[in-house]
Amino acid sequence: MTFKLIINGKTLKGETTTEAVDAATAEKVFKQYANDNGLDGEWTYDDATKTFTITE
């Protein structure tokens, strides 16, 4: 399955995708991506669209 991450950061904005077997796996990938890029914010997830959002 394809999951999307929408980034609404103070300095970084955009989106990225990952292929994962489930939402929990995708969340780990996206949280590592956010950590690697210095993002810290509030996370939301929409199961209907398989989309995570981080807002700083």
Rank of each mutant, 00 (worst) to 15 (best):
M1L: 09
M1T: 14
M1E: 15
T2H: 12
T2M: 06
T2C: 05
T2I: 14
T2F: 07
F3V: 01
F3P: 00
F3W: 11
F3Q: 01
K4Q: 04
K4W: 06
K4A: 05
L5M: 08
L5P: 00
L5A: 02
L5K: 00
I6D: 03
I7C: 04
I7M: 13
I7R: 02
I7D: 01
N8A: 07
N8E: 11
N8T: 07
N8Q: 07
N8Y: 06
G9Q: 12
G9A: 06
K10R: 13
K10A: 13
K10N: 15
K10S: 07
K10T: 14
T11H: 14
T11L: 14
T11I: 11
T11N: 14
L12A: 05
L12Y: 12
L12S: 08
L12D: 15
L12N: 06
L12F: 12
L12K: 04
K13R: 08
K13M: 13
K13W: 09
G14D: 13
G14R: 12
E15P: 02
T16S: 10
T16N: 07
T16Q: 08
T16V: 15
T17F: 12
T17S: 09
T17P: 02
T18L: 09
T18D: 02
T18I: 12
T18A: 06
E19A: 10
E19R: 13
E19T: 15
A20G: 05
A20H: 03
A20E: 06
A20P: 01
V21T: 09
V21R: 10
V21C: 04
V21Q: 06
D22I: 03
D22M: 03
D22W: 03
D22Y: 04
A23G: 06
A23W: 15
A23D: 05
A24G: 14
A24L: 11
T25V: 06
A26S: 02
E27I: 10
E27D: 08
E27L: 12
E27Y: 14
K28V: 06
K28I: 10
K28M: 15
V29C: 05
V29D: 07
F30E: 00
F30I: 02
F30Q: 00
F30G: 00
F30C: 01
F30R: 00
K31A: 07
K31P: 00
K31D: 03
K31T: 08
K31G: 05
Q32I: 10
Q32Y: 06
Q32V: 13
Q32H: 07
Y33I: 10
Y33P: 00
Y33C: 03
Y33N: 02
A34C: 05
A34T: 08
A34H: 01
A34F: 03
N35C: 05
N35F: 11
N35Q: 10
D36G: 08
D36Q: 10
D36H: 14
D36F: 13
D36Y: 06
N37S: 11
N37P: 01
N37V: 09
G38T: 09
G38H: 15
G38W: 05
G38S: 15
G38R: 09
L39Y: 04
L39R: 02
D40E: 12
D40V: 14
D40K: 12
D40A: 09
D40R: 06
G41W: 11
G41A: 03
G41E: 01
G41P: 02
E42A: 14
E42V: 12
W43V: 03
W43S: 01
W43M: 13
W43G: 01
W43R: 01
W43K: 00
T44S: 11
T44G: 13
T44Q: 13
T44Y: 14
Y45E: 00
Y45K: 01
Y45D: 00
Y45F: 04
Y45N: 01
Y45T: 01
D46N: 12
D46C: 05
D46H: 10
D46Q: 09
D47K: 11
D47W: 14
D47Y: 14
D47V: 13
D47I: 07
D47M: 13
A48G: 10
A48L: 11
A48T: 15
A48W: 11
A48I: 08
A48D: 09
T49C: 04
K50I: 03
K50G: 10
K50P: 01
K50M: 09
T51P: 00
T51F: 03
T51C: 04
F52M: 02
F52E: 00
T53Y: 05
T53M: 06
T53L: 05
I54F: 13
I54M: 08
I54W: 04
I54L: 11
I54R: 01
I54G: 01
T55L: 06
T55A: 06
T55S: 08
T55C: 04
T55I: 06
T55G: 04
T55E: 08
E56A: 05
E56R: 02
E56K: 03
E56W: 08
E56L: 11
E56F: 05
E56S: 04
